[in-house]
């Protein structure tokens, strides 16, 4: 009787694994774009910095997400110089900390009244400052898994699933005119699965990666003369 129950349970988990393999990696993405004053000839020798917003109480925009977008833009058009976010924040300390970072493009003029800040901006030839606000979160999870350990044997059995959602908005500031010239947003979601027959096998939906690619493509299209 217990043998039949174990067979039934094994069949159920195998079915779930197959389902997970079919559905695994599926990500839904929605991208919105509203941009103007595109640099049709590209940005030449000027540079771009991409910065994350970190002044909200309940989340920070992830540093690795900002790096991912920068890499995406630079690999799509190597002529675009994207300044590393952490290097930029350190170079301009303490003017781009969560407490002091400008929230409106017009307030950059106040920063430029400080001679060393103005001199450093001249040095790096900044043309666009792109602010990314948002984050990736895991949502509801279901399923159960139990693991055991004995003399010479260990393993897990069960099935778990959880959702992941990303929501990001990029705001593009034209640094020369101190105006906002566009917004691009990306919302992505996906389901992750973790079947376990002895060894748990995570099947992770690339939700944040898809958001990075979606946002990166739109920004590349805006900044690059070749896209």
């Amino acid at each position: 009787m217990s043998m039949r129950r174990a067979e039934k349970q094994l069949a159920r988990v195998t079915g779930l694994i197959l389902l997970a393999l079919v559905l695994g990696g599926c990500v839904n993405a929605t991208v919105d774009e509203m941009t103007y004053n595109e640099p049709v000839a590209g940005i030449g020798e000027s540079s771009v910095v991409i910065l994350g917003r970190r002044h909200k109480p309940d989340y920070d925009t992830e540093f690795d997400f900002i790096e991912c977008i920068g890499d995406h833009i630079h690999s799509g058009d190597p002529s675009i110089e994207v300044i590393n976010e952490i290097a930029f924040i350190n170079q301009f300390y303490p003017w781009f900390e969560p407490r002091t970072a400008p929230l409106q493009p017009q307030t950059i003029d106040q920063l430029l009244q400080l001679p060393p800040v103005a001199a450093r901006f001249d040095e790096i030839k900044l043309e666009y400052m792109i602010w990314i606000d948002g984050n990736t979160e895991n949502t509801e999870s279901t399923g159960s898994m139990s693991c055991g350990i004995g003399p010479g044997v260990a393993g897990c059995f069960g099935f778990g699933t959880w959702g992941t959602e990303s929501e990001y908005e990029a705001t593009i500031w034209d640094f020369t005119d101190k105006v906002e010239v566009g917004r691009v947003s990306a919302q992505t979601s996906g389901q992750n699965y973790m079947p376990a027959v002895v060894v748990p096998i995570p099947i992770i939906a690339p939700v944040q990666g898809t958001a990075c690619d979606s946002l990166g493509d739109q920004l590349l299209e805006y900044l690059s003369a070749h896209h």
Binding site: P94, E97, R99
Partner: peptide, 13 residues
Amino acid sequence: VVALRDAGAHFVT
């Protein structure tokens, strides 16, 4: 570390 940096930013401003 973030708190220290914030303290510095607050002090300067």
